[in-house]
Design a protein around this nucleic acid. Structure first.
Lengths: 150, 150
DNA sequence: GCCATGTAGATGATGCGTCATCTACTGGTG
DNA sequence: CACCAGTAGATGACGCATCATCTACATGGC
């Protein structure tokens, strides 16, 4: 890795601004969600994906694919969520190794209660400051970067 | 927080793409840095800021302001870095409550060794896929969002 | 000089994320 | 059927992040 192509000053500024924005924004969103509903962003994501399928039930590997999380992160997280009564695990008849994650009533109540405040916060902290062109450009940019990450 | 303004589909897509990009990108950067140099992104940031001042010495509260970290996060992190020999803490003569964080020789070696590979990875995973206009737009966007976060 | 308030920093508890590793089952090939 | 490679998932150890709380010193008003 000798003599790398360093970042020029435009890139430096953009990179620092991006890092700072993402750090602060994530922190704020997490804090709001935690304070108002006792959920973490991670909990929220899991619950959203579970409620997307109306049975409220998914195989962990599907959840993993959807969320793009590490397998062990998901497994640990589900254990914590299970301990708090947000989800349960059930056996999977088709595949003896497998399992189902199922959202509980309490999980449904939690996500239902949390969603409005969270969405409102995302809007207020993020989208309200941006034009539609900026939003479109961001989607583009994220897609371009993601393409190269595989 | 009744009847929030939900996100429309453009916003939804942009938001999901952003979240996914940032999660995967951060993970990749962290992994590369960790694997190639034994540093975390957080270590890297701290060391960069310390080497920016050529004495290699800062008051924790300055570091905190620069990094925009929570105070206790910084304190815990410095403790871990100290344990690994990357920094030391010294007393502050001017202010009896205060302290200095000082980068060690080992800290300097670590950041010097880590920087080229890290920068190269940032370039490869991020900037190489983007046009200069996209980079400029991102800086703008991040600045706009940051303005509203205070 | 004394007290109130504020600021610098550390610490313990707890939840989150990653890595390495383990178990158990599946499914294909001989 | 026996075997083996692969896949689903769990777990322990350890570093990271946050919250609440604590100590100690600084500083301004009386």
């Amino acid at each position: 890795m000798n003599s790398p192509r360093w970042l020029d000053s435009d890139e430096q500024r953009a990179w620092r601004a991006y890092l700072r924005m993402q750090g602060r924004l994530t922190a704020r969103l997490n804090r709001q969600l935690q304070a108002d509903s006792g959920l973490s962003l991670a909990d929220y994501e899991v619950l959203v994906h579970l409620t997307d399928r109306e049975e409220g039930r998914l195989r962990p590997y599907e959840l993993q694919r959807d969320l793009q999380w590490e397998q062990s992160r998901l497994s640990h997280h589900l254990t914590r969520m299970q301990r708090r009564g947000l989800v349960t695990r059930e056996e999977c008849a088709d595949d003896g190794r497998g399992a189902y994650v199922v959202i509980t009533e309490e999980g449904r109540r939690a996500i239902t209660a949390a969603a409005p405040g969270h969405v409102e916060t995302v809007r207020r902290l993020f989208f309200d400051g941006l034009t539609r062109e900026q939003v479109a450009a961001l989607e583009r940019l994220a897609a371009d970067v993601l393409d190269r990450l595989d």
